[in-house]
Simulated assay, not measured.
Amino acid sequence: MRQWGLLNWLMFAIFFMSTLSAIYSLAQIYVTEVKADKALLQFSEELSSPEYLDEQKPVIKATRFSQTHYEERPKVGEVFAKIEIPSIKLEAAIIEGTGVEQLDKGVGHYEGSVLPGETDNTVLAGHRDTVFKSLKNVEIGDIVRITTAKGTFVYEIQEQLVVDKHDRTIIVPTESATITIITCYPFDFIGPAPERFILQGVLIDET
């Protein structure tokens, strides 16, 4: 009888810890989504401010080797752009940097990569269980729209692949204005994921 009681307590403890872990995970996702919404609102307000509206943004015809010039790069932690993927109804803020704090607010921009619209490879990253939870549904040919103070840049997804988490061959220079979007994979993996889900596209339009 005593042995049965100990077994019950052990099972209860395991169940209790699993429940606490699930609640904690849900709470973390909720907090992250709140931070992401706040960051997106912050960027939207900045974009509609008099300082931005007073700037003259000429329409630039997109080319394979398009080049957009930024007077200065955003600081780490700064919300400087908005990403939209209409096919999965995604709209999120882009923050400079890919640390924990930045990815908690939305999509992170690798500091070593060029800014949206510039020639070369613009690299973005985000969590698979929050901002990029629907990224697996993006298909070849889908559109990615990025808005910054310099204008709106439209990319077309041309490649989808999965690589090992240590693979750095996709974060390389390119001759054209390219975007690389990265998240952990598999999407339903529990714990640190062993692979990375990659989307790559090229700039097809800008205004």
Score class of each variant (00 low, 15 high):
Ala36Thr: 04
Asp167Phe: 06
Arg196Glu: 02
Ile181Tyr: 08
Thr180Pro: 03
Ile171Glu: 13
Pro50Arg: 07
Leu26Lys: 14
Leu40Met: 02
Asp142Val: 08
Leu124Glu: 07
Asp205Trp: 06
Gly99Lys: 10
Lys75Thr: 06
Val34Ile: 15
Ala39Glu: 02
His69Ile: 15
Phe80Ala: 00
Ala177Cys: 11
Val100Asp: 14
Ile179Gly: 05
Val123Lys: 06
Leu7Thr: 05
Phe189Thr: 03
Thr148Trp: 01
Phe153Cys: 03
Leu103Val: 09
Leu203Asp: 07
Thr148Arg: 03
Val59Lys: 12
Tyr185Gln: 03
Arg2Ile: 13
Thr98Met: 04
Asn137Ser: 11
Gly112Trp: 06
Gln28Asn: 10
Asn121Lys: 08
Ala81Leu: 07
Phe189Trp: 15
Tyr185Leu: 02
Leu20Thr: 12
Gln160Lys: 15
Thr147Cys: 06
Met11His: 10
Asp167Gln: 11
Leu41Ala: 13
Cys184Met: 08
Leu10His: 07
Ile179Phe: 06
Cys184His: 07
Thr98Ile: 14
Val202Cys: 02
Gly141Ile: 09
Ala13Arg: 11
Glu72Met: 11
Phe43Gln: 00
Ala92Asn: 14
Leu41Trp: 07
Ser66His: 12
Thr32Ser: 15
Thr174Lys: 15
Ser25Cys: 10
Ala125Trp: 08
Ile157Val: 13
Arg2Pro: 03
Lys136Thr: 01
Thr183Lys: 09
Ile83Met: 12
Glu45Pro: 00
Val138Trp: 03
Lys35Asp: 01
Phe153Lys: 05
Val34Ala: 09
Glu51Leu: 05
Gly112Tyr: 09
Thr130Pro: 02
Ile83His: 01
Glu91Gln: 12
Val79His: 08
Gln160Val: 13
Ser25Leu: 13
Thr178Val: 07
